[in-house]
Amino acid sequence: MNGILSIYKREFTSYFVTPVAYVFIVIFLFMTGVFTFYLGAFYESNQADLEPFFRFHPWLYLFLIPAISMRLWSDERKSGTIELLMTLPVSITDTVVAKYLAAWSFTAIALSLTFPMWITVNYLGNPDNTVVLASYIGSLIMAGGFLAIGSCISALTKSQVIAFVISVVICFMFILSGFPMVLDLFEDWAPQAVIDAIASFSFLTHFTSIKKGVIDIRDVIYFAALITFWLYVNVVIIENKKAN
């Protein structure tokens, strides 16, 4: 426990000693604004809800989360600090979890700084705030899914660029797995059960129901299983390939 806490603390504060955190937060807030007001037509819809705000979160995360996760392990490999980290008395699982939680907490801070959106919609009308809360929780859980993928991919390479690009591609497939462009690849030859399974992997499907204010236990289990799976693979990768 002590090991997790120490590494978590170090990782989390490291975001704020470099400009990374500030640049990320500013871009994130700016982009959510642009998406909500222009593409989401927040005013024109004349509805007091944050659906136009949350609708674009999967697409924002697609690029922004891999930008956070790319350095998690690649940087340790590149600078050689992985040798220091792996010879300190902390298990690999604890280290993977600590780094992941630090990145997730940082995402939570960025997300919580969008609170002016919530104030705005409450000022303009009477939104259902339980739906807003559910959407925030759903968005954070989804961000956790993206992060787990990104962390795992980052463990594979010492190049942050490679980690970023591959993470984006894999996250993109997870977003789109409910769409024809992915399903068509399987349509001709795979049995229906497989196609249904692939479709059920879509982040969008699971996020859509949470976004409506319904936190279905199945959606939570889906994301929890996804996060556990990718972090487990992350541990296996580090265990088998500590040195380059």
């Binding site: 002590n2 120490s6 600078s79 902390v90």
Partner: peptide, 19 residues
């Protein structure tokens, strides 16, 4: 190897935490 962005003090405190 050491974490470059950390100060010497915070780095040693991190090691002290973990140890």
């Amino acid at each position: 190897p050491a974490y470059g962005e950390m100060t010497v003090k915070s780095f040693l405190n991190f090691i002290a935490d973990i140890r």
